[in-house]
Design a protein around this nucleic acid. Structure first.
Ligand SMILES: [Mn+2]
Ligand SMILES: [Mn+2]
Ligand SMILES: [Mn+2]
Ligand SMILES: [Mn+2]
Lengths: 135, 135
DNA sequence: ATGTTAATGTAGCCTAGGCTACAAAGCTAG
DNA sequence: CTAGCTTTGTAGCCTAGGCTACATTAACAT
């Protein structure tokens, strides 16, 4: 107890990456599946208004994750693609793990969407290794 | 992919409970350990300014989790105590689980602080049962 | 008893993420 | 080719959660 300052801090810092992770992951998937990522589809997939999507996307552009061109589909930068791939992999691994220990699929899919953003690389590695040994 | 609207939604809704969970848990611990919970200690423990702590605490009071009295220590309502106990238990369980699968203590303690808020009751139960069977 | 320090509170500013209402641009059918 | 949807964009508002600077209150020590 007490003196967990750093843990809380980290938890909050990381939060600023959550959007980047969810958006890049989603944009990557939209491009794979539909050929392009449009604001409308992003907003629909995230269950938010297109206005909110536009503003978040514009922030992510400033941070170098993606590129927008007025009334054109959104594309990921190298940095954005990296983050998307990393996020997709982590999402996948965590989902598999929850299923592995017996969490029902519906629940696992819901929980992973939030949990994923707080799983460190070390924990991810540990999960992978644990599943490897317990098959 | 696509159509994960509800999962994202849930992930965001739940977010509004995060503060309540962290604050009630912390206040509960402060009372146990120091005999009372004061703004200064809450702010220090969370690594934020006392001003931010005061404002969040006042929001939590409006939501019925705690009671403040000018320049007096903070107390938890029944609702707040319930949430604290639930959060502490969930924190404990998740931490034990991460340690169980081999995550180093420092890392586990950091990750759990964020992850805990996204672990559903179903997943928590699953974790407990899994650990019970694999001891 | 009073001066200093510590704790609490207020004012006012910022960013991220939400929203509605409205405006403009672009596609698509008829 | 133009009328009407669809998509994108803008203006302006809100809340949560951050902050600094300053004010006030309470506690403590000399
Ligand atoms: Mn997510
Ligand atoms: Mn995800
Ligand atoms: Mn926490
Ligand atoms: Mn906790």
């Amino acid at each position: 107890m007490m003196n967990n300052t750093k843990n809380f801090d980290k938890s909050r810092e990381q939060n600023s990456l959550e959007s980047a992770e969810d958006y890049t992951e989603l944009i990557y998937d939209l491009i794979s599946l539909k050929g392009e990522a449009r604001v409308v589809d992003i907003a629909a997939s995230l269950g938010i208004s297109h206005v909110t999507a536009i503003r978040t996307i514009s922030r992510l552009e400033k941070k170098g994750f993606l590129i927008t061109k007025s009334r054109s589909p959104i594309t990921l930068t190298k940095k954005g693609t990296s983050l998307a791939l990393f996020s997709k992999n982590r999402h996948q691994t965590l989902l598999k793990f929850l299923l592995f220990i017996g969490v029902p699929k519906q629940v696992a899919e819901k929980d992973v969407e939030g949990m994923e953003h707080h799983v460190s690389k070390t924990t991810l590695k540990t999960i992978e290794s644990y599943m490897g040994q317990h098959t």
